[in-house]
Every structure is written in C-alpha cells, then in structure tokens.
Design a protein around this nucleic acid. Sequence first.
DNA 1: GACCCTAATTTTGAATGCAAAATGGCTGTC
DNA 2: GACAGCCATTTTGCATTCAAAATTAGGGTC
Lengths: 240, 240
Amino acid sequence: MLHEEVVARLREKLIDGVMPPGSRVPEKELCAEFGVSRTPLREALKVMASEGYIVLLPNRGARVAKMTARNLEELFEVCGGMEALAGELACQHGTDAEIAEIEALHDRMAEFYAVRDLAGYYPLNRAIHEAIVRATHNAVLINLYENVSARIRRARFVVPMPPDHWRLAMAEHEAILNALQRRDAVMLSSILKTHLRNKCEQVERAGFAESDETPTPPAAARKTPVKKPQPEQSDMERVP
Amino acid sequence: MLHEEVVARLREKLIDGVMPPGSRVPEKELCAEFGVSRTPLREALKVMASEGYIVLLPNRGARVAKMTARNLEELFEVCGGMEALAGELACQHGTDAEIAEIEALHDRMAEFYAVRDLAGYYPLNRAIHEAIVRATHNAVLINLYENVSARIRRARFVVPMPPDHWRLAMAEHEAILNALQRRDAVMLSSILKTHLRNKCEQVERAGFAESDETPTPPAAARKTPVKKPQPEQSDMERVP
DNA sequence: GACCCTAATTTTGAATGCAAAATGGCTGTC
DNA sequence: GACAGCCATTTTGCATTCAAAATTAGGGTC
C-alpha cells in the first residue's frame, strides 16, 4: 500500500508547515522525493483532499488547503465537541489501567510545568488528550479526532503561551484528571470543552485577521502577467 | 475530477446496500459499469477507505466495510456527539431564516406523523437534522456529519418503528424545535443527544448480536476448499 | 512599451501496460 | 475420496504513456 506511505509523509510535511498553506503541490518533485510514480502520489492527494488537508482544482492541480481564521475556529469547535464526547465516553468505557496511564502522563507533564519547560510540556499535553480519546474505545471517534486535531496542529504557529494561561491550562488539567478518576462524565465533558475553548481564544487573540480569503488566483483572468502575482503566498498572515 | 463521480456513485451503492458489507469490490466490473478505467476507480477506493466505507487488503483488493453491532454503536455515539454540538452551535450561529426553515420542515413532518406515514416522515426527519447541522455554519462539522450519518444510514435495515417510540421521537422533535426557537443551546444539545440515543437503543434492541467478527477469511489458510466457504456473507446477521 | 494573439512547453487527468501476488484448477499420491 | 503440489488465469499494485488543458514564451501590432 504505497499510497498510505505517501499520505503519511505528506501529512507530516503539511503539519510541520514544510509546505505552506496555499502553495502548489508539485507532483513531479514529490514523486522524485518519495521515489514513487505519479499514480500512488495522486491516490494520496485524493485521500488528503477528502480529509481536508489539500484542495484539488480541476485541471490546475492540488494546493495545500488554506487555513483561515474561520476554518481554524470551526476546527476548534468540532475538536471541542469531540473532546467533550471523548471525556464522557472515557468515563464510561475507560479501564482503570488507562486512567492510571493518563495519571502518569499528567504527573510527568506537571513536572515539566513545575520547571516551565514548554517543549517538554506540549507533547505530554497532547499525549493526555489522545489517551483520553483512546480510552473511549471508540475507533470511529479516535480516527476522526486524529484528523481534526492534526489539522489544528497544522496551524501551530508556536504561540508563546502567556504564564497565566499556562497556569489556567494546568489547573484545568488537574480538574480533568480528577473528574476522570471519579468517572464524572458530565464534569469531565464540560471541563474539556472549556479547556479547548480557552486554547482557541488564546490562539485567536494571538493574532489572526478574520479577513483571509484569496479564494484562488482567477486562472487565466489575470492582466499584468507579473512574474509572481501571488508568490506562493502563505495564508494566515498575522495582523500587526 | 472523474474519481469524485465514482466516489459519489459508489457511496450510493454502499449506502443503498447494493453491495453488501463484507463483499468484494470487483474493480473490473465497476470500471465497466461506470465506464472509467481502473485509475480513477482505484483513486475512489482509496478515498472511500479513508472515509471508512471500505477496507483495503494488501494484494487482496477492497472489500465493503463490515458493520458490526459495535461499529454501529460507535457511529451512534459519535453522531450523537456531533448532533449535540450542532444543536449548540445552531443556537449560537443559526439565522432566523434557517430556524424558520426548520420549523417548516418540522410542520410538514408533523403532518406525516399525524397520518402515520413513515415513508413521508423519514426524509423530513433526516432533513431536519441535516438542517440543524447546516445551521451551525461550520463546514468542518457539516462534512464530518455527512460522513458519519451516511455510514449509519448504510445500516438502515428498515426497523419498523413501534408506535410508542415514534410518539416519543415526535415529542422530542417538538422539544427540539422549541429549544431551537428559544436558542436554548444547552437544552437543545441535551435533547439531541438523548434523541439519538433512543434511536440507537431502538436499533440495538431491534436485534443485532454483539458477536459479529469474522475479520476476514484467513486467505490461503483454509483447509476444506468448499466452493464458497464464506459466500460473500453479509455481516450484521440478526439474532432470532 | 503595452497589449493581444499564437505556438511551444509543462502539467494535469485518465488509460494502458507490466510485473508480482493471489486465486482457481488440475493432476498425482496416498 | 482427501490432500498436497504444480501450473494457468485472474487480480492487484504501480509505472508508464497519451491526450487535453493550462502555463509560458515569443512575435506582431498599435
């Protein structure tokens, strides 16, 4: 299954921001880079398109999907809904071992917080949320969450978390763990939704214009054929 | 974009149960049927696989994804979470016109209920739920909901709804409309989650064993090569 | 020099071709 | 008759090829 390999690698490239939003997806170069022919690459592109990572323009190839502020907001809304659901289901279906594992992750994360090590904190934060989702034992949810959270991660223009936000996030995580251990589905669900909303607002305040559009250079409808009318412009421009 | 056409047509075939779960996906025949070559068909298969409709077995082709009772339960859980989220967001972001449209759909549905016309009732029921999701103005959610609800629809072994359940569903729909009109996000969210849970339980009680497995005929590991060891068996067998 | 029209080149979308794997059928053995 | 082994056929996965569309480059006109 060559195309799956390509999907995985391409997805990484997109999430890591190697290919900026709005940029063309050069089939030929990617084929060379991955050492595959166009067939599996194009299969991968179709899959990525259906997952919302890229956009296919008829006869004009693929472009990395743009990330507008609105789109990010939508992703946060959905992700929040999924996490809330996950919290509820994890309380119902999670095993004690899984909860213990989450507790262990939490404790390790708390240590990183204690020394204010953001680079160590983040992966554990993510691991906790993923572990909660896995604890639902709901394969459908696990899959969809992976998709949505990856698309959000694609926008991780590293926001340098302000100390008070971080403190709040950490306090929420204490509450998350607590609710999970008590298997308080309603509480956990509610906290998780708030938790993500805080993150979302933080990101929004970190500075993105609502404006972003530029649907696509209108093809052959250009007048002055400047060398680069829209030089692979990356979307998500910050506001000053 | 030929493959999209194929995806659409294939999806219909799967949802309508023309191709039973677990059955092989015959590339050649489908190519002939759709009048396309294998390339776009295979692209479509990759997409459908990533959407959970079919399963790709390395070197053994594609099979229609089975629908186990557990899988259906998972889909209901996720769908419920999405509808709850949709209700909340629709209260926040829905326009008055959209709510009015939902009211109109509701009234038409109520008429079908009054004369106990299930065939007329169902499409409107579906239309209402879809309209609520659309009223969120959240494109991500709309897409994911479409996927999940279609996968559920694939299992619509027409359960002849018992009268009291129908009455309950109709009462819930009254409450749904009411909450929406009052833009009571918390209430609407809660009702929608319950609403779907009722449907789910109803389906479960309608008769599906939890057993279903049969991961895949273990390929060349069969002993007695009976003509048809697993004659394209459809999963989701009912319990007597 | 700006503009428009046409020809060469590149890129895209889909069909075809080809090697490897799997399937099915056949025979031979016990 | 059951079973293993071998070969023909089909199916699968991917590479390659081909036609159509888009992009680019060039040349003429004003």
